[in-house]
Design a binder for these strands. Structure first.
Lengths: 332, 332
DNA sequence: CTGTTAGCGCATTCAC
DNA sequence: GTGAATGCGCTAACAG
């Protein structure tokens, strides 16, 4: 593990010169450059970034906080972030928070302790006031999650319109009794519900509060949601699920009740999760422009690190309704 | 962003004393300790880890290389790694390699450049010789993937026995024509195939080479595998798939051919992926002790960092056969 | 074009 | 029990 000193000595130059060829800045004669490079290659020298980072007071690392790496939804988002980061000489680190506030706080120390230059949140267990304080002092960007009080750059889609389109699709198929399986306390699902309600009202139908149920963001949440909806005297004939995972649970539960999808009940999911086209039936869903979301998020992050851009804006990207088997017009 | 200097000044002590209370080592009178701590709290001081890491020449960070974070199989493995790391004062960083050798090489530079203390591979695009050279010089552990020529600690299950049990399960159900959808060039799948062949031979049946097909480690690989197997004049009545994702593709393709699972064809997957219990039918599979695999891998990593343990051993943990709908005795 | 030097923030040895 | 001084490896100002 040679140091820059040893390289300099062996090449018969000063450390400054070695540093110059290493970083390819400052003037170096092509002759000494060649000489130094030869020694670098010979010794297989790799600069110790601990020294460089301390000196430069930056690491060119961006930390991305994920609630759970196994959520396939974030895969392409992260890819968009990575590509953009790499193009700009930055690297992406990923950490799992499991919605654990203590764990999240450890990773935030990476930021405060200068181990990373910025943090991208795809979820947070922090209260808004605390988050805003953090965002005021450090480069922080929110991706795909928000509430109205947050003061930090946010990249997302227009969830209200997406919810409107998903619901309108069901209405156009002739459904009049449309349920919704949602989750509590999440800004994006609140907006999706507003869109759901607007679509129903604009169609001249009535919003039935019993048709809106709240469960967890999971397969099991979907199963429980269907159970609750089908305990009603007059259950819905279509259900808009806040996520594809919930939709999968919903379909599985409907099947176990002997109901067919889409023949007896139509289902719409959300996210275009990788499971959506694979499931049986394949699931109609809202596709988010995940790669672009990641890309845009990273662009804003890099701007913030450079000090430009203000702290208080929201970017909304375009989504798509993808129609699959789970809402095909019934064959019967 | 105060430095240790400013804390020392404000507290009226030397930086050495501040450092002592920070790290809780070396003698400090309880009085000055209290005084210093008060200033630390007041200034909200957080040590700059760039300085500390350079000085200590360690970062207490372990990098975990994943081919793709969205593979839910690794979620619990990573959790096991994280818990073990945290218990020992280490943190886990995750990076996506996408099986891209250039990307992998960037992340390996983190190790060579002292940004992380060790790297855990769950996959690698490197050739064995290169890998072995790396493993000789740096703390490196392989998790769940291997080939016989690799000289580094490896944590995995006994894939030969697992393949044997999966196949034997199908034989016990009365199947005599058992296909296998595998992938090429992966040590674990090679071992699973050996187990598959041993089970068939021990049952007095014959291995039919046409029944073993190779495709990619994916949903589409499963669809193609079934297509190939069912072009045969005498197709199998049961198929052992090297992964649950392949099993999902296989089932989807069988259904589209009008064949029922398990009534017409029985399917066994591998990994107990989160999709396995959710799919319709739910999938019989081999469950790996994922959390323990992660835990053990990290334990070995920490040993290697401390310099103990040799470089050339393999740890095999216990697996389980989980029987679900996809191999239920046919109703017909 | 090249070398000398200072210092990033911290932990640690050695005096006292 | 405490402080002064050194240096981890590197970059960047400055001088030549």
């Amino acid at each position: 593990m040679p140091t820059i000193q040893e390289v300099a000595k062996k090449a018969g130059v000063s450390v400054a010169t070695v540093s110059r060829v290493l970083n390819d800045n400052g003037p170096v004669s092509s002759n000494t450059r060649k000489k130094v490079q030869a020694v670098i290659d010979e010794l297989n020298y790799q600069p110790n970034l601990l020294g460089r980072n301390l000196r430069r007071s930056e690491t060119r690392m961006i930390l991305v906080l994920l609630q759970n790496i196994s959520n396939p939804f974030y895969s392409k988002i992260v890819k968009g972030m990575e590509d953009t980061a790499h193009e700009n000489g930055y690297n992406v680190l990923i950490c799992n928070t499991n919605t654990d506030i203590d764990l999240e706080s450890i990773y935030l120390d990476f930021l405060k302790n200068k181990l990373v230059d910025g943090v991208i949140f795809t979820c947070t267990a922090m209260v808004t006031a605390e988050f805003n304080k953090l965002a005021k002092n450090y480069p922080v960007v929110l991706c795909n999650e928000y509430n109205k009080d947050i003061k930090a750059p946010i990249v997302t889609i227009d969830n209200e319109i997406a919810g409107y389109e998903a619901t309108s699709h069901l209405i156009k198929l002739g459904h009049k009794k449309i349920g919704m399986i949602s989750v509590n306390n999440v800004g994006s699902s609140y907006d999706r519900m507003k869109g759901y309600m607007r679509a129903i009202e604009e169609a001249g139908l009535e919003v039935n509060d019993d048709y809106i149920v709240y469960h967890t963001f999971s397969y099991k949440g979907g199963m429980r949601g269907i159970k609750q909806l089908f305990e009603l005297d007059d259950p819905p004939t279509a259900v808009f699920c806040i996520s594809d995972l919930i939709a999968v649970g919903a379909i599985k539960e409907l099947k176990s009740k002997g109901l067919r999808v889409p023949n007896d009940v139509a289902i719409v999911g959300f996210d275009n999760n990788s499971i959506a086209p694979m499931y049986d039936p394949s699931i109609t869903t809202i596709a988010q422009p995940r790669y672009d979301i990641g890309k845009k998020t990273m662009e804003i992050m890099l701007q913030r690190i450079k000090g430009s851009g203000n702290n208080n804006y929201i970017v909304k990207l375009e989504h798509d309704l993808i129609i699959r088997e789970s809402t095909l017009p019934s064959i019967d």
